[in-house]
Structures are given as structure tokens and as C-alpha cells.
Design a protein around this nucleic acid. Structure first.
Length: 567
RNA sequence: AGGGGUGUAGCCAAGAGGUAAGGCAACGGUCUUUGGAAUCGUCAUUCGUUGGUUCGAAUCCAGCCACCCCUGCCA
């Protein structure tokens, strides 16, 4: 850990070689060096039509990260140009999610704030003969557009003169025409091999109420028109988006140059995030929620930021993960194990330990005085001395995990078995002297003896013991619900469905298991959002479904287990 | 088929004519009061492929192959 670091936490020699920079930063460096811009400004531009997921987190970290790295600014701008799909509920959740991730936007904007400017710019486009009102129906426009291999045909309205276009456009705005009857189109090139350039629609008539502008407008700008101009109006220098917009870049540039916008924003595309064993498309997530395969948008199994948050993934871990995966243009699917690594990495240091028994086996310490209770002082986090310690009661009646005992142990099993001795962590060494079975032949109780000279879990004679188990004093333990979450899909790539299949076929039927667990007394005080490492089992967070005296814990992620894999 | 992209290890990903970074995963060793953590080590004679240029190519050139995106009045 003690290596020389340069400013920014990177090895200085790496800094000198330009390592640690993604291709976008290289482009920014070149832009700055060439004098194309004298500052850097980015933006995160979600459409408020749904919940953010971890794919958005990559974009958020990228945009805000680039702004910080270059001493620039990053805005949060809602791309709310389609009133039929957008709602205030989503803008609220998006702001909450971005803030939770740990970023503060320099300015908050809405594309709808620019509707007036955008309208005036459209009139200008008409005046200079670069846009026209087209009366073709949606279906006709599609037919006229041509195909991938055949050029399109020009609209019969393409050469209307500017005065008529202006008049028509104003009347569109005034609400004189019904929805779908006319659109404003850019006059570019119907024969372009890039379909986005075949006179794209700039404005459509849509008489629906907008969540922010109400009924002020009945014409709304399209993304391809509103986005570049909003960027330019706002002063964005580098407009970062995902690969599917690469074909739109010529149109993006066309808008900015045709209107001679003072700021020449530059669009740069990168590949969106995919993760194994989950889906990251809005459509599929919506289906999972609406069909009830999960319980709402913040279901802890979902990759939504609200789901991840409830699951107990720390924001810092998400940021570290996004940093680690890099930024490139190649399609890729990151192994979910990489995400889980950063979650464990963060939680290991930041989370106090506690003891919980999921599947109890009764242990009676036969030589321990009946009625006696000792308070054992237990370290909260061996990784962090400042986390302190807590008292945990110990008594004659103990609970351990069933899986910590084997009647006929395998060679590598070094937990409890007849005659074997193990350590109860922070308490005593115990030896299994006998056990009792029920009528089904299942072991239901262990009779052990303890060594009074091993208090705290240390043996004075230097005698070593191979296994260490977690435990609970039966009379002091209380019950709580534990939800054992696992990956949502058993299919590694749920998006790649076999022919005739559906992505839902890949769902994991056991993605959540509810367990009535026994918990140590200190856990009674856990507040919603408090995270713990349940010793030897995994990381858990108190869920909002808990009741006073009856908490609910979500398993965030299990601990790595090299034993199971070998067995 | 026309256009736009992308191919470096099981998964991400650096690399920019000088002899393949790093992380995840995996596998060994050490250590350990969590079968966790920590720690040490192993893991690409080769960069989709075939040719070419060069003293020298993952980097430059040409061809081929594979995959992704584009025919919303969605974003």
C-alpha cells in the first residue's frame, strides 16, 4: 500500500506515460492542446421516463469524472422532449440516484427549459431554407425514406418557400392542426446512405400535457434536434453518449453548424455496459417489474440504482467498479464477479461483524454451569481497530450452524465432528463428546465440553485448533428474517436467448430465499441501511421491511468460499 | 445488400513502429481466532485472419472473416 503516488493517486511514472486515461480523455487532451476549447463541460442527460440502473452509473461516473479531472463542470439535464413518456416521479428518483452515487451537478437543466429557444432556432432554420413543413403522414414519410440499400424520395412539400413554411410552422405551434398531420423536417439529403440524414423530423405535433410546461406547447422537438442545441445552448464542450448514436453524429453536427451556434459541442460515443447474469435494458427491467417477477423497481435483485442501494451495495463500491471497467467502444459484458469484488472490498473494511445462525443446531456445553452467563468482548472489525468491540453473551446453551458439524467428516472438513475440538470464536474451545438424533436419524443436539482455560478463544498451552465457528447463546438470540439474494438469472447472458426462447426463461427460480435466522442481541439495534458482515457468511443490510424487534436483513453478497468449490 | 462501428487471456482493458500494463476470475504457497481478509507466486512467444511495408508491426497498408448499430412523428 505504501507506494509513491502522484497527485490524483496514480503512480507518477504512469501519469507521465499517459496511462490511466481513457480514449475520451485523450480526445479531450487533444482538443485542449489544439485550442478547440479552453475548458471542459459535460452533462448527464437522462430522459425522465424510468429508473436509472448501473449502466447509467457508468455514464454518470464518466461524465462527472471527466469534469472533475479537467477542472470543468458537469450538469444534470433532463431530456424531457416527449411528454407522453415522462413523469415528475422519474425526475425525482433520478436526482436522488445521482446524489446517492455521490455526485453534485453544477447546474440542473431541463430540455423543456429551452423550448422557447429551440422554437426560435427552428424558425431561423426555416428562414435560411434548411427546414420545411411536411404534410406527409407518418407512414408516407417512412415509405419516402427508402431502405438501407435504396435512396429515399423527396417529399412533395420539400420545396415550399420559407414564408409558407414559417406560416405553417407558426400555425402548428398555435394548435391549428391535429396530431400527426404535419411535421417540421430538416432539408438535408434524401439519398444519404445514413438514414438519419434523409430529411429527419425536427418537430412533431403532440397535444399532450408536459410534466413541466403543462399545456404551453403542442409541438415538441425531436431528440436529434433538441439534444445538440441544448448542449450548445448550455455550453457543453464534450457531449458523451452511447454507441448507438454514432450514426446521429452527422446530424448533431449539422444542427450546430447550420445554426452557427457559438459553442461547437462535440459528440463522443462509448460502449454501454453489460453485466453477466442480469439485464440492463429499460424494456426488460420494466417487464420484470410489471409481470411481478420482482417486487418493484427497488427490488434488491434488480440492477437499478434504487435496487442496488436497497440491496446494500455501497455507492463507493459502484464508483470503484465503474472506474475499474474502463471506457471503450467495443461491445463488452463485464463479469458480475468484478462488481461483487468491489462490493466486498469496500464492505470488508467498512462493516462491523456480527453473528447470525441461519440453520441452527443445538449445542449443550455439559460442563458449563447452568444459569451462568458471561459477556465475551468481541472485536467489531479486525480490519479496522477503530471499530471497537462489543459484548456478546455466552451460556450453556449454544446455537451453531448445522453445516458446522459432520457425523462422518470428510478428510478436509475441519469443523466439529465426534471427538473433534474447535474454537467458538472469541469464546472457548469446545469438544464434541456426544450427540443425539431424532426419530428420522437427523442429528439434533450436540453435547460438548469446553475448556475453561481457553476463554476468549486462546489456548494457554499453545494447543491449536483447526476450525473456528460462529455461535449464539440460545436464550439470548432473537429471531429475524434474512433474505438470501442470489443472481436474478441463471443464464449468463439473458439477452442472448436461444431461438424460440424468451429472456424470462433464464430467470433464477431461487433468486431469493427467506430464512428465519437467529441473531445476536446487538443486531436488535440495527437501523435501516446499516450493513454488517455476518461472520463467515456474507454481508447483510437492514431492510426497510423490518419491524421493531423483528428486523429484516438482505444479503448483499456472500463471502468468498474456497472450501465449497473444492468440495 | 448500403452506411457506421468493433475485434488484445475465461471476463474487462492499457498499448499510438522498439519486442504484450493493470484489474476480475482461476490455480498454487505463506499467514490467519472468519475455509474471509492479507500476502507471495503462476496465468498471451502473441494481439480476429491472410498477405505486404520495415532492421523491427498489436501498432502502418491491402484483402478476408466475425460480431454490434441504423429504415420511430422514441431517446
Amino acid at each position: 500500500m505504501e507506494m509513491t503516488m502522484g497527485p490524483g493517486g496514480r503512480p507518477p511514472e504512469g501519469e507521465a506515460r499517459g496511462e490511466g486515461k481513457n480514449f475520451i480523455q485523450h480526445l479531450i487532451d487533444a482538443d485542449l492542446a489544439a485550442g478547440n476549447y479552453d475548458r471542459v463541460q459535460t452533462r448527464f442527460p437522462p430522459e425522465p421516463n424510468g429508473y436509472l440502473h448501473i449502466g447509467h452509473a457508468k455514464s454518470i461516473c464518466l461524465n462527472f469524472g471527466l469534469a472533475v479531472a479537467n477542472g470543468g463542470a458537469c450538469n444534470l439535464r433532463f431530456d424531457d422532449t416527449n411528454p407522453t413518456k415522462e413523469e415528475q416521479e422519474f425526475v425525482d428518483s433520478i436526482m436522488e440516484d445521482v446524489a446517492w452515487l455521490g455526485f453534485q451537478w453544477d447546474n440542473l437543466h431541463f430540455a423543456s427549459d429551452y423550448f422557447g429557444d429551440l422554437y426560435r432556432l427552428a424558425e431561423k432554420l426555416i428562414e435560411i431554407g434548411k427546414a420545411y413543413v411536411c404534410d406527409l403522414s407518418a407512414e408516407e414519410i417512412r415509405e419516402y425514406r427508402g431502405t438501407l440499400t435504396e435512396p429515399g424520395r423527396e417529399s412533395p412539400y420539400r420545396y415550399r418557400d420559407p414564408e409558407e413554411n414559417l406560416d405553417l410552422f407558426r400555425r402548428m405551434k398555435a394548435g391549428e392542426f391535429p396530431d400527426g398531420s404535419r411535421v417540421l423536417r430538416a432539408k438535408i439529403d434524401m439519398a444519404s446512405p445514413n438514414l438519419n440524414l434523409r430529411d429527419p423530423v425536427l418537430y412533431r405535433i403532440q397535444k399532450s400535457r408536459h410534466h413541466r410546461t403543462g399545456d404551453d406547447w403542442c409541438i415538441y422537438p425531436m431528440y436529434d434536434y433538441a439534444h445538440p442545441l441544448s448542449d450548445a445552448l448550455e455550453g457543453v464542450t464534450h457531449s458523451i453518449c452511447t454507441m448507438e448514436f454514432e450514426d446521429h453524429r452527422p446530424l448533431y453536427d449539422w444542427c450546430i453548424s447550420s445554426l452557427d451556434m457559438p459553442v461547437k459541442s462535440r459528440q463522443i460515443e462509448f460502449a454501454r455496459l453489460n453485466i453477466t447474469y442480469t439485464v440492463l435494458s429499460k424494456r426488460k427491467l420494466k417487464l420484470l417489474v410489471e409481470e411481478g417477477h420482482v417486487n418493484g423497481w427497488d427490488d434488491p435483485r434488480l440492477p437499478t440504482l434504487s435496487g442496488i442501494r436497497r440491496r446494500g451495495y455501497p455507492a463507493a463500491a459502484i464508483r470503484a467498479f465503474c472506474e475499474s471497467i474502463g471506457v471503450a467502444k467495443a461491445n463488452s459484458t463485464v463479469d458480475i464477479a468484478q462488481l461483487e469484488f468491489f462490493v466486498r472490498d469496500h464492505l470488508n473494511y467498512h462493516t462491523p461483524r456480527a453473528m447470525a445462525v441461519m440453520d441452527p443446531l443445538k449445542v449443550t456445553i455439559t460442563n458449563y454451569p447452568e444459569g451462568q452467563v458471561e459477556m465475551m468482548q468481541v472485536v467489531n472489525n479486525p480490519e479496522n481497530k477503530e471499530a471497537g468491540s462489543r459484548p456478546v453473551p455466552f451460556s450453556r446453551d449454544i446455537l451453531i450452524e448445522k453445516s458446522d458439524f459432520m457425523e462422518f467428516p470428510s478428510k478436509k472438513f475441519h469443523r466439529l465432528s465426534p471427538g473433534a475440538e474447535i474454537r467458538l470464536q472469541n469464546a472457548y474451545y469446545i469438544r464434541c463428546e456426544d450427540y443425539r438424533k431424532d426419530e428420522n436419524g437427523e442429528v439434533v443436539e450436540l453435547f460438548c465440553t469446553y475448556d475453561p482455560k481457553t476463554r476468549g478463544g486462546w489456548s494457554e498451552d499453545g494447543r491449536r485448533v483447526k476450525g473456528t465457528a460462529h455461535w449464539l447463546s440460545a436464550p439470548h438470540a432473537f429471531r429475524g428474517e434474512v433474505r438470501l439474494y442470489d443472481r436474478l438469472f441463471v443464464a449468463e447472458n439473458p439477452d442472448e436467448t436461444p431461438e424460440g426462447g424468451h429472456f424470462l426463461d433464464g430467470l433464477n427460480p431461487a433468486s431469493m430465499e427467506k430464512v428465519a435466522a437467529y441473531l445476536e442481541p446487538s443486531l436488535l439495534e440495527a437501523k435501516v441501511g446499516d450493513a454488517f458482515q455476518f461472520l463467515r457468511q456474507g454481508y447483510f443490510v437492514a431492510d426497510r421491511d423490518g419491524q421493531p424487534g423483528r428486523p429484516v436483513f438482505n444479503r448483499i453478497v456472500s463471502l468468498k468460499d474456497s472450501f465449497k468449490k473444492k468440495g
